[in-house]
């Protein structure tokens, strides 16, 4: 299973997105500043936008799902339970997974923003698509819910997961890092080799790198372990 981008080009007004590279099975993190084209790339990969030129080749991918940045755009049903059902899932299972067991009869828009994000995240993971794209999956979540989302990403164990995020505190273990800058997608390669080249590294990781540590992955605990190793 893989997704190949070949000389992808999309122009919209003054903005141009370009990218080439291959997303293999595993967890990919795409970082980039506000307006750098992360969400546009996610829409292209999901087939919701079409490139002006170039190609996206999905090999062995039979299902694709995109978690949108703003979860309210996913909502189609008047209650939380019906919303879960609209994804083709058993509502009780979804509500248990999202820690919303007693909220089934509520209007999804009466959930707090973090609760709504938890609901849509649970639905997305339970659909278990081959190609899963998560556009800012951690925004709106508190640190405990972010850690839970990280566990869901790490435990998926199959398929291609692409995270588009600027999260700076709670990150999952990833396999590869990509950067978007001014519309240009650059593959930094696999972790840990890519970590020292990662210009958008969160502050704690940059701190560890500055001290000469070489973290195995990008999580806070990886940075702490790496510092402990060099301090003996």
């Amino acid at each position: 299973m893989r997704v190949e981008l070949e000389d992808l080009l999309l122009s919209r007004g003054p903005f141009t997105l370009r990218g080439s590279g291959t997303f293999e099975e595993g967890v990919h993190l795409v970082s980039g500043a506000v307006g750098s084209g992360k969400s546009t790339l996610a829409l292209l990969l999901a087939g919701l936008l079409h490139p002006g030129s170039g190609a996206i080749r999905r090999q062995g991918v039979s299902s694709t799902l995109l978690l949108l940045q703003f979860p309210e755009y996913h909502v189609t049903s008047p209650t939380v339970a019906e919303e879960a059902g609209s994804w083709g899932l058993v509502p009780d299972d979804v509500l248990a997974r999202a820690d919303l067991a007693d909220r089934g009869d509520d209007d999804p828009f009466h959930l707090s923003r973090g609760e709504l994000k938890r609901l849509i995240l649970a639905c997305t993971f339970m659909r278990d698509p081959d190609l899963l794209m998560l556009d800012e999956p951690f925004s709106s979540l508190d640190c405990a819910a972010k850690q839970k989302a990280c566990r869901m990403i790490e435990e998926r164990g199959r398929g291609i997961t692409i995270i588009f995020s600027h999260e700076r505190a709670v990150l999952p273990r990833v396999d590869a890092i990509w950067e978007m800058e001014g519309g240009i997608l650059t593959a930094l390669g696999n972790v840990p080799g890519a970590i020292p080249r990662w210009r958008h590294a969160p502050p704690y990781l940059a701190y560890a790198l500055d001290r000469g540590a070489r973290p195995e992955n990008i999580r806070l605990e990886d940075a702490r372990e790496a510092i402990c190793r060099i301090q003996g």
Binding site: C143, R168, V170, P203, Y204, L220, R224
Partner: peptide
């Protein structure tokens, strides 16, 4: 003891 502790304080 919680995840609400700032990451930069934790790493330093």
């Amino acid at each position: 003891e919680t995840c609400f502790y700032p990451t930069m304080w934790r790493i330093r």
